[in-house]
Design a protein around this nucleic acid. Structure first.
Lengths: 138, 138
DNA sequence: GTATCTGCAAAACATTTGCAATTCT
DNA sequence: AGAATTGCAAATGTTTTGCAGATAC
């Protein structure tokens, strides 16, 4: 994604497009790997030597508030961040640790009402053995 | 649930039925409110004055390993524990904070295979406005 | 020149670990 | 006695907070 598009994304949500914010959002857009705060920090702090963790936290907070980025709880105790397009589920392989996005078979994500409750957010994460690990064993 | 049943539960999974473990499991069985470690600790430490948090952590770890109890991530950063019977989903009201178990419409919980991955665990949590809060507004 | 953003250091929390004391069999 | 369980205190790791300095509008 081009730098101008990153800026547009930010400004479309009324977020000032500071250098740090651009870099952090750019990282999330280009690395759809659901990184942790620490992963983001260590990945871009080479480019921005003065970057502090606090700024990463601050920025992510803003991005989540403005719904540009989602907080994902894939595994207990691992707060991760996700720039994603469209509803999807997550699948984590308990063997290799790889995390997959699942776009198939997502009817649950379309449910707007259950037991009289109205539903705004759907979070689905599945765990098991991924197809690669299964093939290796076979 | 009777004390003898609690003991049976523990022994059926080859867990020594110590006093602390019985009390912690009893609490979870009688309070299906997905309590945090701290909630469990402060709720029963009155009865067991020498109880330490470490023991609660240790016990919960054993109970989860032996699959008597499930770790639930309802909200980011809140590790909760759940003694539950049968697969179900969770719904949290963003207005009143109440957490509901959902047993309806759970087809996703039956899926054993997606995209070639084999699935062992299903975690679904939904957020929105619960029926009580909706009625109050109407 | 005022508001916003950034970064350091300290604080706040939750969880884990090592080890010694206790309890159970 | 020997093994498992418990509990304290310290360590760890992550996120938050307060405030001062820098930057942007």
């Amino acid at each position: 994604m081009k730098k101008s598009e990153i800026i547009q994304l930010l400004e479309s949500r009324n977020i000032q497009a500071s250098y740090h914010r651009m870099k952090i959002l750019e990282y999330l857009v280009n690395h759809r790997t659901h990184p942790t705060v620490d992963k983001i920090y260590s990945s871009i702090s080479g480019e921005i030597p003065t970057l502090s963790r606090t700024t990463v936290y601050n920025t992510l907070k803003v991005l989540v508030e403005k719904k540009l980025v989602a907080q994902v709880t894939v595994e207990e105790n691992e707060l991760r961040y996700d720039y994603s397009e469209g509803p999807h589920m997550h699948f984590k392989c308990t063997k290799c640790g790889e995390l997959y996005d699942i776009f198939d078979n997502c009817k649950i994500l379309e449910v707007k009402n259950i037991d009289g409750h109205s539903i705004d957010e759907h979070h689905v994460y599945l765990k098991g053995i991924c197809r690669n690990c299964r093939e290796k064993n076979a």
